[in-house]
Simulated assay, not measured.
Amino acid sequence: MKALSKYILVVLSGLSFACGKTEPQTQIPAKGQAVPVTLLSLKSGDFSTEIQASGTFSTQDETLLSFKVGGIVSQILVNEGDPIKPGQILASLDLTEIQAGLAQARLGYEKALRDQQRAERLFIDSVATLEQVQNAKTALEIAEQQLKASQFNLTYSQIRAPKAGFVLRKFVNPGQQVSSGAAVLQVNGAASGNWVLQVTVNDQNWSQIREGDPATLLPANSSMEIPGKVIRKSQATDPLTGTYWVEISPEKTKGLELATGMFGKAIIRPSLQSSGWEIPFGALLDAQGDEGFVYVTPDRKSAKRVAVKIGKISKSSVQIVSGLEDYQELIVSGSAYLTDGSIIQIQKP
């Protein structure tokens, strides 16, 4: 029993000795005591970072098709997703009323033509006056234009495909009455390969992007990285989201199966470079939005708190756009113990 007690005492002594070897923790400097810091020389330069954004694919020629005149839909000859060819009939109205109007316009034209010819013969025989001949001629011209309008309405009582592509949406069905200009079908020209990826960016990224900037597209349904370029950007913010859109055109879409509304990502490389400073992430304090604070030393003896404007933020560094113009050295460690005017003790990194 005595041997067991001695063994326990030895183990406890060993544990106490091991605990005594723990690494000393950094002591918080007392008030008025110099704070140990490390410095970084500030050098301004130009930098450009990649902008990552996401959005959806679409074509530049999505079109809502409608009838020129109102009426009852007779036929819808396609369904959503169907491929279409240029000039293909996609839908038509019941032509009973339209053809009746055309026949009425043709009869009116024929009557006006007879009246005009009769007036000219009577004028030769000095029976009709010049005014009557002129009025008959005007009536003939009016009837001719009415006939052309009726023929035009008959032509556009059918919807034809403007180009090769696909049917995206079908808004009506046969037997439904539609008004003039009401959307019947939505189609695109996907067969011509005019795909774009429309992504959204914030105002800071928008100001750096220019038309023609290179980009890489990453469709959701493929592991391919497709080169492209920025072809257009919005000039007004979206009132609902507060963001701006940017359209990116891929250089090639061969081998890809794209659909309108498909999700995709883009990496944009702005050609416009910004000037400023790149500092370690840990040197930035109290960041809110695009503003924050850092500590600098103007005399290598004391710390000064300076407000800065923030650019891009990465995992290890921060881009500072303005605020450090008048300073040469930045405090990169020890900032947590500093206040404005604190005495510092410079240590080697």
Results as ranks from 00 to 15, higher is better:
Tyr337Pro: 04
Arg169Trp: 01
Ile279Lys: 04
Ala215Thr: 14
Gly311Ser: 06
Gly212His: 05
Phe166Val: 10
Leu90Arg: 04
Ser66Arg: 02
Arg118Glu: 06
Thr260Cys: 03
Gly282Asp: 15
Leu93Thr: 10
Ala34Gln: 06
Ile320Pro: 03
Ser335His: 12
Glu120Tyr: 00
Lys252Ser: 15
Thr155Asn: 09
Ser222Pro: 15
Val332Ala: 11
Lys301Cys: 00
Leu77Val: 13
Phe123His: 13
Pro29Ser: 03
Ile98Cys: 07
Gln117Trp: 04
Gly323Asn: 05
Val308Ser: 09
Leu107Cys: 02
Ala303Pro: 02
Leu39Ile: 03
Tyr244Arg: 08
Lys315Met: 13
Gly193His: 08
Gln25Ser: 11
Val127Asn: 01
Glu80Arg: 11
Leu42Pro: 01
Val133Ser: 14
Gly212Asp: 05
Val246His: 04
Gln204Arg: 14
Leu130Ile: 10
Ser192Cys: 02
Ser222Asn: 15
Asp286Val: 03
Thr237Gln: 14
Ile159Lys: 07
Ala236Lys: 08
Leu90Ser: 04
Phe152Gln: 14
Ser316Tyr: 00
Met262Trp: 03
Ser317Asp: 07
Leu197Lys: 01
Asn202Met: 07
Ser314Leu: 12
Pro280Val: 07
Ala336Glu: 15
Lys6Val: 14
Glu97Tyr: 06
Asn188Ala: 09
Val201Tyr: 09
Asn194Gln: 09
Trp277Gln: 07
Ala336Val: 15
Leu64Ala: 12
Ser302Thr: 12
Ala303Tyr: 01
Val127Asp: 01
Glu291Thr: 15
Lys148Gly: 03
Gln145Met: 08
Gly81Val: 11
Gly261Lys: 04
Leu39Glu: 05
Pro349Gly: 00
Leu330Arg: 03
Gln99Arg: 12
Thr56Asn: 14
Ile267Gly: 00
Arg160Ser: 14
Thr200Val: 04
Leu330His: 01
Asp203Val: 13
Asn221Phe: 11
Gly292Ile: 03
Ile76Gly: 12
Gly87Trp: 08
Gln198Gly: 05
Pro219Lys: 08
Val246Cys: 05
Thr237His: 02
Asn205Ile: 07
Leu140Gly: 01
Gly165Gln: 03
Leu39Val: 03
